[in-house]
Amino acid sequence: MKLLVLIGNVPDTTTKIKFNADRTAFDASGVQWIINPWDELALTRAMELKETTGGAVETITVANVGRQETEATLRKALAIGADKAIRVDADVRDAFYVANQLAQVCKGYDLIFAGIEASDYNGAAVGGMLAELLGIQSVSAVSSVQIEGGKLHLIREIDGGSQSVSVATPAMAIVQKGIAKEPRIPAMRGIMMARSKPLEVVQPVDTEIRVSFESFELPPAKAACKKFSEEQGKELMHALREEAKVL
């Protein structure tokens, strides 16, 4: 089986988010970039499958859409153990644009992993769109992937429980947390080996931009904490009712 894992390049989750002066674009200066946490778990699961299924998984490829500066993220994925990387050389626009770019490089794989969302824009749309463009089945909210006898056995998280499904290949698994326990840490040898692994750069295809960003808003700054003493029960109730309006 040939596996492909989509790798989003997102700001480190501890980044202080800033926007440009007119709030139309994210200010990326000084930001540390990481693999989208869901994608990192997906890659970890792909690696586990490769190691435990006795040769059922032939290769793991990783792919992203992004400019050259996102290659560090792909290199990290190669250091963790992916065999090959593909980068579509374009700026990330809306989900349809990204899915359309990926569609050209995602053909011929038996199982594609996408994260359920990206930790930056929370789009949660690329995986499903891409499956549609590729004409393959997709299963969402996947928390477990097993390969047995060339078939995929997946577990989905549903409200209040879980659902087991089996799917014929080729298929798309849109994964959520739980798909692997902890993301793999690349070992030093892996980091060195990543140097000589192939990283293919592909030109973007023309795609109509259907959604454009108008402006961003940060959540309002947290107001200062109000403290009440034990005797101020009344005042507390009043504040909860009238000021916080939570009661």
């Binding site: 501890t14 990481i34 290659e71 560090a72 290199r75 990290k76 250091a79 840490i185 690349p186 070992a187 030093m188 980091i191 990543a194 140097r195």
Partner: peptide, 29 residues
């Protein structure tokens, strides 16, 4: 997990991408 490494002189710019992957890996571990 909140640890932020001080880098007042942008010494990071003197490191390669590979050095940064090494650092992130060991830091995470």
């Amino acid at each position: 997990n909140k640890f932020t490494a001080p880098d007042h002189y942008l010494v990071d710019d003197l490191l390669t991408e590979e050095h940064k992957i090494v650092r992130a890996a060991v830091r995470e571990w």
